Computed example of a mutant assay.
Amino acid sequence: MEELGSSRALSKFEFAVQMTCEKCAHAVKNVLQDVKGVKEFSINMDSKSVLVETTLLAEEVHRLLETTGRKAVLKGMGTIKSKNLGAAVAMMSGEGPIQGVVRFIQASENTCIIEGTLDGLSPGLHGIHVHEFGDISNGCESCGEHYNPHRNSHGGPGEDNRHVGDLGNIFAEDNGRASFRLVDERLKVYEIIGRSLVVDEREDDLGHGGHQLSKTTGNSGRRLACGIIARSAGLFENNKQLCTCDGITIWEERNYPIAGPGRNTQLQSPPANL
């Protein structure tokens, strides 16, 4: 079977899965046990949870789980370590239809896993960077410059002389979707919570182009989408079963937008697939 994930660094995802009997658990086991990129998994019927140790994207594991016909919700993420070193998430939005989710997991003191999916991009490469401010009051323009605490020149992943926030490029397919998994040795989750993540119009030249902007921004054009980086639940830190503000279960919440007017509007009439 083809391996879906794109990095050897392992992370763990905790999913709530709508399992009601042993037959459900057996179905989950069948879809996970022979997948390359899934190292280990465990199923707990009492808590209706599935813990997956993997190199796959959370989106890929989520899709596998839901091929069983059961709803699944990501509840927490972390690493193979017993101690959670930090996790964060950025809800991305921008020009036109661009939207998506990017997650950060501190796998070790020197390894941060960044994974996400964005839709609505033009096909090809797009620069992606952590910026210094978690301010989107004026769209992506108020996010400040690249996060660069050491005052280095712009560069790319794996280079010594780079902004800490320089994460390189992500690739959007012809359908406008970019699904990616990056592993970075400079980024620390605890340093970037409250800052922002920005995706740019064009490919980042990683500081190696001849343009005058190469050493500062990578000459990657306008800022297309951004999101504030917020702390996310680590493994076993999210016991939520009911959203107290809306009175809906996690299974219902899965079908609604995270926030905004669309959430309240849709809550008035349940989705057809419930």
Rank of each mutant, 00 (worst) to 15 (best):
E3D: 09
R8E: 13
A9V: 15
S11A: 13
S11T: 14
Q18M: 10
T20H: 13
K23C: 08
K23E: 13
A25P: 01
A27C: 03
V28I: 14
V28T: 04
K29S: 15
Q33R: 12
D34M: 07
F41I: 09
S42I: 00
D46E: 13
D46A: 15
S49F: 02
S49R: 15
S49K: 15
L51F: 06
E53V: 15
E53N: 13
L56S: 04
L56A: 08
E59T: 05
V61F: 09
L64P: 10
L64K: 10
E66W: 10
T68C: 06
A72K: 02
V73F: 13
G76M: 06
M77Q: 15
G78Q: 14
G78S: 11
T79Y: 12
K81C: 09
S82C: 03
G86Q: 05
A87V: 04
M91Y: 10
M92V: 14
Q99M: 11
Q99F: 09
V101N: 06
V102D: 04
R103Q: 13
F104G: 06
F104K: 03
I105P: 05
I105Y: 08
A107K: 11
S108K: 10
S108V: 08
N110R: 05
I113L: 15
D119T: 14
D119S: 13
D119R: 08
S122R: 10
S122Y: 07
L125Y: 04
L125A: 05
H126N: 04
G127K: 04
G127Q: 03
I128A: 11
H129E: 15
E132C: 03
G134Q: 01
D135A: 01
I136F: 02
S137D: 03
S137A: 12
S137I: 03
G139I: 02
G139Q: 10
C140L: 06
C140D: 03
H146I: 12
Y147T: 05
R151W: 00
R151D: 13
G155L: 02
P157Q: 06
E159T: 05
N161T: 09
N161Y: 00
N161V: 05
H163Q: 09
V164A: 05
D166P: 11
N169R: 00
I170V: 14
D174C: 01
N175G: 01
A178W: 04
A178Q: 00
R181Q: 05
L182I: 15
E185R: 09
R186N: 13
K188P: 01
Y190I: 00
E191I: 01
I193F: 02
I193W: 00
R195I: 02
R195S: 04
S196V: 03
S196A: 14
V198L: 07
R202L: 15
E203M: 10
D204I: 03
H208R: 11
G210P: 00
H211T: 11
Q212W: 00
K215Q: 14
T216V: 12
T217G: 07
T217R: 14
T217L: 08
S220L: 03
R223L: 08
R223D: 01
R223I: 01
L224F: 06
A225W: 04
G227N: 08
G227V: 09
R231K: 14
R231G: 14
A233N: 12
A233T: 05
G234C: 08
L235I: 15
G247N: 03
I248M: 07
I250F: 06
N255M: 13
Y256P: 00
I258N: 10
R263Q: 09
N264V: 13
T265Q: 15
Q266S: 10
Q268T: 11
P270A: 07
P271R: 08
L274V: 06
